[in-house]
Amino acid sequence: MFAAFLQYLFSGLTSGAIYALAGLGFAIIYNSSHVINFAQGEFIMIGGMATATMVAAGLPLPLAIALSMLASMMVGVALEKFAIEPARNSDVVTIIIITIGASIFLRGAAQILWDKEFHSLPAFSGETPIGVFGATLMPQSLWVFGVSGAVIVALWWFFNRTMFGKAMLGTSHNRLAAQLVGVGVKKVLLASFALSALLGAVGGVVVTPITFTNYEAGIMLGLKGFSAAVLGGLGNGGGAIVGGLIVGIAEALASGYLSSAYKDAIAFIIILFVLFFMPNGLFGKRGTDRV
C-alpha cells in the first residue's frame, strides 16, 4: 500500500515539477511588470521544439540547447519590445489579450516553421527506472527537480545579490520610485521577458523527454503554469514552485484514490478553495486597495 502511495507521490512530483517550472516564468514577468504573460507556455514549446528538431537534424545536444535558449530569448525580447512596451500604460485586460494574441501567433508560426507532429528528446541519463521502496522514478524526473531547484537558487541570487536583480525587484515594488533613483524601467521589463523566455526554454528542454512536445504543447503548460503561479501567490517564485507541486500531487493522488476522470477538476476545486480563504494565494502579498 505504501509503495502505491509513494508511486502516486512520484507521479505527482514529476508532473508538479513541470507545472512549477512553467509557473516560475509567470512569476518573474509578473514581478517586474504586473503583467500575466499567457504566451509563457509557448516559450516552453519553443525551447522543446527547437531543441528536438535541431537534435534530430544532427546537432549535438548541448549546442542545440544553447541555440534554442537563445532563440526563445529573442522571441521573448521581441514580444516585449514590439507588443508589450507600446501598450505599457493600458488596462490589465488589454495586455492579457495582447499576450493571448501572441500565444496564438507563436503557435501559428511554430506549425509552419516546424510541423504538427510530436517530437521527443532522448532522456539525459538513460531510461533505467530508479527503484525506491517498491516505487519507481525515471532519472529524467530527477533532472526536472534538479533544474527547478537550481533555477530557484539562481533566481534568488540574481534578485538579492546582483545590482540589476535588485533593480528589477525595486521596479516591481514601486515603478515611479525606481525611476526616480535611476533604474531604467524599460530595461527591467525587457530583461524580465528575456529571463522568463530563457527559463521557459530550459523547462521545455528538460521536460520534453518525459512529455514529448508539439506546436500545441504550450496551451496545457501555460494553463497549469498559470494555476501554479496563482495558487502560490502571484509574483512569488517559491510560491509558484509550491503551487505547481500541489497541483501535480493533487492530480496524482486524485487519480490514485478517487477518480482519474475527475483529477483535473479536483485540482481546480482545491485551487478554488484556497482562493476562497486566501484571496492572494498561499504566499501572495496582501494587496491594499488604493482609492
Binding site: 507521479s11 505527482g12 514529476t14 508532473s15 504543447a217 476522470a261
Partner: peptide, 20 residues
C-alpha cells in the same frame, strides 16, 4: 478502468492502480 487527459505528462498513478 482508468482514464487520462490527452496532455497529461505522467500516468504512472493510473497504471499503479491497475498494477495493484
Amino acid at each position: 478502468d482508468e482514464v487520462y487527459s490527452p496532455k497529461d505528462p505522467d500516468v504512472t498513478a493510473q497504471l499503479t492502480k491497475i498494477k495493484n
